[in-house]
């Protein structure tokens, strides 16, 4: 934060400047501490860094989707179920298992279908929120339940026999990691360097003001939820590739990790604030914690969900503390 001597400005001491910079980039020191802790207590976690990053790809894309929604002052509880439903629906079309529909074996049709399903569900979320005026929490909660239920209604067994190219996209570690990084890079650049990106921040800061300065907020909300749906569908594709089949529980519970990743990464729960680079840090942190839990002798598989909840709580506490500290420093420095 710069110093200023004018009428409209703030005078901060060097200490405050350092504190503000630290708070705005809180994820990196936290990540460093966590990495160090995992290195000391569960060193086997880092046997394969590539495996950690590969495992981070689906959650990374979901964090990206959630970050976009959070930055715009909205949120999407249905991202995990969109990932799961779109992957299952497409799997049913492509798969050769006995209860599959097996309509085609073309992976290209599969790519088109999964993206189309994700975008249509996202579009429906956006229309219901922007045009019909439903509360984002209730709308996306309803879709979470509906599409998780629809997925279970479609299939309760793993969907197998998928075309190899279809599973290779998420099953090739370097490609999958590259795709996630490109998605983060593009989203970060779009948010920073386009009017659309700045409109997302404006919407998150004040929907009323955004409308008054001429931003078509309804259209923007619809676009944001549609992009969130597409990113969630790609996450579903990556999850499918990661395990090579469509498991019946695909996508379930991931929304909470996505929230935790975004919030730990510094994305404001109330919109208008946060950087995509921070969200990427949040993804890495969440995945390292997951890998450490999986590798730890002390923690059983049945306890992991509970630990995930604790991580989410810690993320929210950190965010709350950060917000209070930031406001206190800036208020004390205001002229």
């Amino acid at each position: 934060m710069a110093t200023e001597q004018g009428v409209v400005g703030r005078v901060f001491g060097d200490r405050d400047d350092v504190m503000l910079t630290l708070l705005d980039n809180m994820i990196w020191p936290i990540l460093a501490v966590v990495l160090l802790g995992v290195l000391v207590f569960v060193p086997q976690t880092f046997r394969s860094v590539q495996l950690i990053l590969w495992g981070a790809v689906p959650i990374g894309l979901l964090v990206l989707a959630e970050s976009l929604c959070l930055l715009s002052g909205h949120f999407d509880l249905s991202i995990g179920s969109i990932a799961g439903f779109s992957a299952m629906f497409t799997g049913m079309i492509l798969g050769t298992c006995p209860s599959c529909w097996a309509l085609t074996t073309s992976p290209w049709v599969g790519f088109a279908v999964i993206l189309l399903v994700g975008s249509l569900i996202g579009l429906a979320n956006g229309v219901m929120i922007a045009k019909v005026g439903l509360n984002p929490f209730l709308q996306t909660l309803a879709f979470l339940i509906i599409f998780e239920g629809a997925k279970t209604a479609m299939q309760t067994q793993p969907v197998t026999g998928l075309p190899s190219l279809y599973t290779q996209v998420g099953g090739t570690p370097r490609f999958a990691i590259g795709l996630m990084l490109v998605a983060f890079l593009i989203t970060g650049l779009v948010l920073r360097y386009t009017s659309f990106g700045q409109a997302v921040y404006a919407l998150g800061s004040s929907e009323h003001s955004a409308r008054e300065v001429g931003i078509d907020t309804e259209r923007l909300i619809i676009v944001i939820y549609t992009v969130s749906g597409v990113l969630s569908a790609i996450a579903g594709l990556m999850l499918t590739g990661f395990v090579g089949v469509v498991p019946p529980l695909i996508g379930e519970g991931l929304v909470f990790q996505a929230f935790a990743g975004a919030v730990i990464g510094g994305i404001s729960l109330f919109g208008g604030r946060g950087k995509i680079t921070g969200a990427l840090g949040g993804v890495i942190l969440i995945q390292v914690v997951q890998s450490a839990l999986n590798n730890s002798q002390a923690i059983g598989a049945t306890q992991i969900q509970m630990i995930n909840g604790i991580v989410l709580l810690v993320a929210i506490l950190l965010y709350s503390t950060q917000t209070k500290l930031r406001a206190r420093i800036l208020a004390s420095g205001a002229v």
Binding site: S206, S209, G272
Partner: peptide, 10 residues
């Protein structure tokens, strides 16, 4: 306008 239409976080 009276409400100024400002985005506080920006």
């Amino acid at each position: 306008y009276q409400d100024l239409a400002l985005m506080d976080d920006l």
